[in-house]
Amino acid sequence: MAAYTEGVPCWADALLPDVEAGKRFYGELFGWTFDEGAGPEYGRYAQAYKEGKAVAALAPKRDGRMPTVWNVYFATPDAFASARKIRDAGGRLVTEPMPVGPFGTMALAADPEGAVFGLWQGGTHEGFEKAGEPDSFCWTEVKVRDAARADAFYEDVFRFEGFDLDGVIDGFRTWSPAGAEAGPDTAVGGRELMGEGVPAELPAHFLVYFNVDDCDEAARVTRGLGGRVQSPPVDIPYGRIATLVDNQGAVFAVLQDHAD
């Protein structure tokens, strides 16, 4: 039985110009350690660990025209079937499903507005070994301009149960796995409608969140490491968040639980 239910975010990686610089940045920020990186046949993919458990990876950009970005991957029991559903729902494949040795099968896709996300069909590598805890992945959301179009796409492809947070966070819809009771308690990700104040040139995109013990400290450390704060720490009903940019330009967010 697969470790991750269909549609659950199961992995994240950053595409960077300089992986060694990325190791120094994230090693200092999150206390991550890294392996030596897979061989050239796997793109010298460097896996990150927290307390010995896999939490993410850093990959070198093969082409300077590629974006410097954090990618999120959604679990699928059949990457080829999911790819067909993506096309049928109005999306497109950026990278067709491809086996990655014994580790699994991956693909990159774009939704109808162009937001890029990954698919992962686990093999020997099923995904995160640690998530939802400090210094590990905890959430993802897609930021779009056409909410109805995005909702129809993701709820068709991954069979998500959607739940609107209007009145709590306007323009936000959470996603729960198929068969779960929709709502924040079962949510694994979500969709946010970009408002009129967002620059028109900013395309639809995913944002990857990492849990931290102290949101303000994470912002301070990011600045000290040569990164920057895109959106300063702010309280929301579910915690304290900030949007940060690493020292190579990859955007990510941090979340401090209110209980902390």
Results as ranks from 00 to 15, higher is better:
residue 4 Y to M: 05
residue 6 E to A: 15
residue 6 E to W: 08
residue 6 E to K: 14
residue 8 V to W: 04
residue 9 P to G: 08
residue 11 W to T: 11
residue 11 W to N: 13
residue 12 A to V: 08
residue 12 A to P: 07
residue 16 L to S: 05
residue 16 L to F: 02
residue 17 P to E: 09
residue 19 V to H: 08
residue 20 E to H: 10
residue 26 Y to Q: 00
residue 27 G to F: 02
residue 28 E to C: 03
residue 29 L to V: 00
residue 30 F to Y: 14
residue 32 W to V: 09
residue 38 A to C: 08
residue 43 G to L: 06
residue 43 G to C: 07
residue 48 A to D: 04
residue 49 Y to T: 08
residue 51 E to K: 14
residue 51 E to D: 15
residue 52 G to T: 12
residue 54 A to N: 06
residue 59 A to Q: 07
residue 60 P to W: 02
residue 62 R to W: 00
residue 62 R to G: 15
residue 67 P to D: 00
residue 68 T to L: 01
residue 69 V to I: 10
residue 80 F to W: 15
residue 84 R to D: 13
residue 85 K to G: 09
residue 85 K to I: 01
residue 86 I to G: 07
residue 87 R to N: 11
residue 90 G to S: 05
residue 90 G to E: 03
residue 92 R to A: 15
residue 93 L to Q: 13
residue 95 T to H: 14
residue 96 E to Q: 12
residue 99 P to F: 00
residue 100 V to W: 05
residue 101 G to T: 06
residue 101 G to D: 00
residue 104 G to S: 09
residue 104 G to I: 09
residue 104 G to L: 08
residue 105 T to Q: 15
residue 108 L to I: 12
residue 111 D to I: 13
residue 113 E to R: 04
residue 113 E to C: 08
residue 114 G to Y: 08
residue 115 A to L: 05
residue 116 V to E: 14
residue 118 G to H: 05
residue 119 L to C: 09
residue 120 W to H: 11
residue 121 Q to S: 08
residue 121 Q to C: 12
residue 122 G to D: 11
residue 122 G to E: 10
residue 122 G to V: 14
residue 123 G to H: 11
residue 124 T to K: 09
residue 125 H to T: 10
residue 131 A to H: 13
residue 132 G to S: 10
residue 133 E to R: 14
residue 138 C to M: 03
residue 140 T to N: 14
residue 141 E to N: 02
residue 142 V to Q: 04
residue 143 K to L: 00
residue 143 K to S: 02
residue 147 A to L: 13
residue 147 A to C: 06
residue 148 A to F: 05
residue 150 A to C: 06
residue 152 A to H: 04
residue 153 F to L: 04
residue 157 V to E: 15
residue 157 V to N: 13
residue 158 F to M: 12
residue 160 F to S: 08
residue 166 D to W: 00
residue 168 V to Y: 02
residue 169 I to R: 08
residue 170 D to W: 10
residue 172 F to W: 15
residue 175 W to N: 11
residue 180 A to R: 05
residue 187 A to Y: 04
residue 187 A to N: 07
residue 188 V to M: 05
residue 191 R to W: 09
residue 194 M to V: 06
residue 195 G to F: 12
residue 197 G to I: 09
residue 197 G to M: 12
residue 197 G to F: 13
residue 203 P to E: 02
residue 203 P to Y: 01
residue 206 F to E: 01
residue 215 C to M: 03
residue 216 D to V: 09
residue 224 G to H: 07
residue 225 L to V: 03
residue 228 R to A: 11
residue 230 Q to L: 15
residue 238 Y to A: 13
residue 240 R to A: 13
residue 240 R to V: 13
residue 241 I to F: 02
residue 245 V to L: 07
residue 246 D to H: 04
residue 247 N to T: 03
residue 251 V to C: 10
residue 254 V to K: 04
residue 254 V to I: 02
residue 256 Q to V: 11
residue 258 H to M: 07
